[in-house]
Amino acid sequence: MLLVPCPHCGPRNAADLRYLGETTVRPDPSSADPDAWRSYLYLRDNPAGWLTETWYCRSGCRRYFTLERHTVTNEFRQSPLPFAKGERS
């Protein structure tokens, strides 16, 4: 079991959340070429180490947030941007 520290609800079982994977930067739609779009859609760093990732607290506060997790030890640490872009007040 993985305990995910939700910034609102505190530690919760990963099964209560939805995992959205590696946090990626969306290219600018007005200037991105198909290559950049598809890299954004599909290519991932998939590191064995610290990874910035997005979770959705589906059975709690229902907010998206960003955390850093070590993919070998599964430790969490706070990301500088705890909530997804555009949602932070």
Partner: peptide, 13 residues
């Protein structure tokens, strides 16, 4: 498992 990891421990879930 529903999240990406290189950890191969088993889980009770």
């Amino acid at each position: 498992d529903p999240f990406a990891t290189y950890d191969m421990r088993g889980s009770l879930d």
